[in-house]
Computed example of a mutant assay.
Amino acid sequence: MQRRHSKRWQMITGDLVSATVLATVPVSAALGTLTLTQLMIVAVVQGAASVLHDAAAISLPPSLVDRSLIQRSNSRVGALFAVAATAGSHLGAALTALLGPARALLGDVASYLISAVCTARIQTAEPARARPEIRRLRGEIGEGLQYVRGDDRLWTLTLVNATTSFALGLLNTLWALYLFVPA
Rank of each mutant, 00 (worst) to 15 (best):
L31T: 07
F180I: 03
A23R: 02
L168C: 04
A183I: 00
V109T: 10
R3I: 07
T86H: 01
G107K: 09
R136G: 00
G100D: 04
L95G: 06
D66N: 12
A97S: 06
V27L: 15
R149E: 02
G100N: 10
R135L: 07
V77R: 14
G47T: 01
R3L: 10
R153L: 10
V65S: 09
L177C: 08
V17L: 06
A130M: 03
Q146C: 00
R121Y: 01
I122W: 01
E140T: 01
P61A: 05
V51F: 01
V44Q: 07
R103C: 03
L179C: 05
I58N: 07
R103S: 11
Q2W: 05
A128Y: 01
D15R: 12
T173M: 10
R121L: 15
R76A: 12
L168A: 02
S165H: 10
T96P: 02
L159F: 00
S73F: 13
D15Q: 15
G47F: 06
R136L: 12
A128V: 09
L113S: 00
V77S: 14
R129Y: 01
R67S: 13
V77Y: 15
M1V: 10
G14T: 12
R135K: 14
H5G: 01
T164M: 15
Q2E: 13
L113A: 10
R136T: 08
L154Y: 06
W9V: 03
L64W: 05
R135Q: 09
A116H: 01
G78E: 15
V25G: 05
L34T: 09
L69I: 00
L99C: 07
I134S: 09
Q10R: 13
T164H: 08
G88E: 06
V45Q: 08
L64I: 05
L36H: 11
L69D: 15
A30F: 04
R4W: 02
G169K: 08
Q2I: 15
P127Y: 03
L39V: 02
T119K: 04
G107Y: 03
V65K: 13
S28R: 15
L171E: 08
W175I: 12
P26L: 09
A23S: 10
G144H: 04
P182F: 04
R72S: 12
R121C: 05
D54A: 11
L137N: 05
L171D: 11
R67I: 13
A125S: 14
L113W: 06
R129F: 03
P182M: 06
G100L: 07
T163W: 04
S111T: 15
